[in-house]
Design a protein around this nucleic acid. Sequence first.
DNA 1: ACCTTGACCTTGG
DNA 2: CCCAAGGCCAAGG
Length: 115
Amino acid sequence: MGNPSSDGDDYVEVVLSLVERIPWGRATTYGDLAEVVRERTGTGGPRQVGRVLSMHGGGVPWWRVVRADGRLPAHNEDAARQNHLAEGTAMLGPERVDLRTAGWDPHDSDSPNRP
DNA sequence: ACCTTGACCTTGG
DNA sequence: CCCAAGGCCAAGG
């Protein structure tokens, strides 16, 4: 049943809950995340995911969400880099996550993937 | 209702 | 690899 409080809050909750599930040392993209969120809430896109993280990302590992090409978030690249370094995330360059290895698909949030 | 902005994506040169 | 253009979705002025 729906929580009639507000759809906007629901959207935010869905995004944050998914971001919290991204495993240590892995990463996913705004686009893939938005795709799953859209299936659950019926709305939103990559930019909306970015908006949510910019406003409410303080309590979740936001640095594990990167752009489609693996580049770090466009406003906190420095902090993101430090976190990935600490997590030992597979990187291609100093500013790019290796999604081929560290990529995590929010669709398969139940099982491990991409060894 | 129109226009601008933004933690985006994809394609083409 | 770098750059530009068009598309996309919602919020705020």
